[in-house]
Design a protein around this nucleic acid. Structure first.
Lengths: 357, 357
DNA sequence: ATGATCAGCGCAAACGTTTGCGCAAATCCA
DNA sequence: TGGATTTGCGCAAACGTTTGCGCTGATCAT
């Protein structure tokens, strides 16, 4: 059964190759590009397209595998249905899982994620932000490298909605979604104190980073609450790598005189390095030194001993960040959504690496 | 000092906001869009733009932070300077570091990476491939989820260059870049055999995946070469997670009668789970059970005991894949580059987890 | 039979670039 | 001084979509 044209058509039935564009598809069907566009964008009803025509187009589109060119669409619509995600280090398991969750949430909302890694460099971060801007992402989820955000202001001023994750800049009026680093650190210290520890070392990461600052603040608050004086020589560490954790813990545990009975590590990989260092000092976890670490990882329970951690709700951080961004994108521009910080609760997962004194 | 117009201009000096497009910038300078475009695309020389004009444009562009709209550019040029990277799981450290290296190499070549995660689903993989196609990526680096590639053929037929990483499909004529999984597995077994082990268990990952198949093949070849018979009951495992490794190793080590003296794990996280299982069986690594694992990780040397691994040249895999893709992109289309598989050598990093019998 | 109404679809402009071609002014040669 | 050449730049079309508006034919009421 072949459709009978209602009137003689200029181009009766042009042959068409694989993956044609709308124009070619329209030509092959003898109808206009407008109609094809209206059908494929799902706006057939509103535009009063005859059901027969709609089916015709849909069938042909499916048959030839038509894909609407997003460059052209983005140009015309001035929106790309893309959000940018800019993180400092994709090889960091925390950001990897964050990225995964962000993508999932974005996809569910009909958006694609353009994932970029600034490799811990503010300069690359600035370049990449511009690049994302040039690519006309509709919005941005950012975890800036350092303490500065000046280089990101042009982005914001040009009207691109921004949501921060894992960072807060009190001076900057953009929404943030973070885990409760302060509270988590307090929980860790409280947990250690509850097990009788009073001499607690802290293995930190990048001192200037927001998470590090907050966790350290929580650490000191915890000590304070227990009536323990903070001793600077019980704090060590330079970055968030396993190697950094190893050296920092080495420094803390080398001297039997000043050795702490427990270590709080401020990031997932730090704990691995620290446990190694403890081991190399001829000590045992948890009998000689207990360990609590920030950041849960799937493998934490498979270490020996399994690791007590502060778990961040990564999935929730991601979905909330995406939700906030999409809400801004959907609200008619002009009506500013509230900036504000969303702080999500963390939880302590108690395992074998903490022992009672 | 203000520039003096060489003739009365229609729009003498239009004011301009932040981040104008070429048209606005041109208007504000009283020159044409063409000229601005020619300057900003670096083609000033070829187009005989007066040096004075060039500087004028460059200065204004820098001042206002002009960003060339990549949607429009992509539409006009029919190329986006973007490559897609489609991997099964960004939370897997191997793919995370691969992604990082791919991005680095691509950036060096002037390309941006659109990173997508198919979350181990062939269906998502197909959708995402279409999405990347619709976004008009210039090329694609793929690590398909499973054994099938049929769903990717339309992509290839529409002319998008594809390079595979970490996978080979002998029947499909696309270039592949992989580490020598077979050779690496042999090295692992040889290493264990050299330490006197003859009863060697294997903790595998996703049985259907290319890497798993090759590593298992190497494992069996290694046994064979040592005159050891492969025993199916010494093979266990279902996926590449720490949990999978734990259960598989548990199964292998539970029974003291049939327990192997060494374990070869086919992926990074598997080793963590396996070591945990060994520990829970009341055994010690390496005195009771030795462990070698495929996939080096930064933290491998910080485990206790530190882990002997087969290291893949991730950075080289990435840079070679990007290099091959860019070469195809740069060769005038029509001249097909050779498909072929590039197999990169792996190396054994000997640490404490292997002991002599 | 006549005008009004409406369903269904196409025309054409616009989004922001790039680039072949051509035009005016400046320079050169005789 | 006059023609030829060169220099420097603008015009306009094209890339593939989307969408306001208007056109055609059919249906309907009178």
């Amino acid at each position: 059964m072949q459709e009978k044209p209602r009137k003689p058509r200029s181009k009766p039935a042009v042959e068409v190759g694989p993956r044609p564009n709308l124009k070619e598809l329209a030509a092959s069907l003898g109808i206009s590009v407008s109609t094809v566009s209206r059908v494929l964008s799902g706006r057939a009803e509103q535009n009063r397209i005859a059901p027969a025509t709609r089916e015709l187009v849909l069938a042909a589109a499916a048959k030839f595998g038509v894909l609407v060119d997003q460059s052209a669409r983005g140009l015309r619509l001035r929106q790309t249905l893309t959000i940018g995600l800019l993180i400092p280090d994709i090889a960091n398991p925390f950001f990897a899982s964050l990225a995964c969750s962000v993508e999932k949430a974005a996809r569910a909302g009909g958006y694609t994620v353009l994932l970029c890694d600034s490799r811990e460099s503010t300069e690359i971060e600035r370049e990449t932000a511009d690049l994302l801007h040039a690519r006309r992402v509709d919005g941005l989820i950012l975890a800036p490298v350092g303490e500065t955000y000046q280089h990101l202001l042009p982005l914001q001023q040009s009207g691109i909605p921004i949501v921060l994750v894992d960072r807060v800049f009190p001076q900057w009026d953009v929404p943030s979604v973070v885990a409760d680093s302060f509270g988590g650190a307090r929980m860790a210290v409280d947990h250690l104190v509850a097990h009788g520890h009073r001499r607690i070392g802290c293995v930190q990461g990048l001192a200037a980073s927001y998470s590090n600052i907050e966790r350290l603040r929580g650490f000191r608050a915890g000590l304070n609450a227990a009536g323990i004086r903070f001793e600077p020589q019980l704090l060590s560490g330079t970055d968030f790598t396993a190697e950094g954790g190893y050296h920092a813990a080495m420094e803390l545990c080398r001297n039997p005189e000043t050795r702490p009975t427990a270590l709080f590590t401020l990031g997932n990989l730090l704990a691995l390095g620290a446990m190694r260092a403890i081991h190399e000092c001829g000590l045992k976890v948890p009998s000689d030194v207990s360990v609590v670490s920030f950041d849960e990882q799937p493998w934490a329970e498979f270490l020996s001993p399994s690791l007590t951690t502060i778990a961040q709700p990564v999935e929730t951080i991601a979905s909330e960040a995406v939700a906030r961004l999409l809400e801004i994108l959907r609200t008619p521009s002009g009506t500013k959504s509230a900036a504000g910080v969303l702080t999500l609760p963390v939880s302590l997962i108690s395992r074998e690496s903490v022992g009672a004194l």
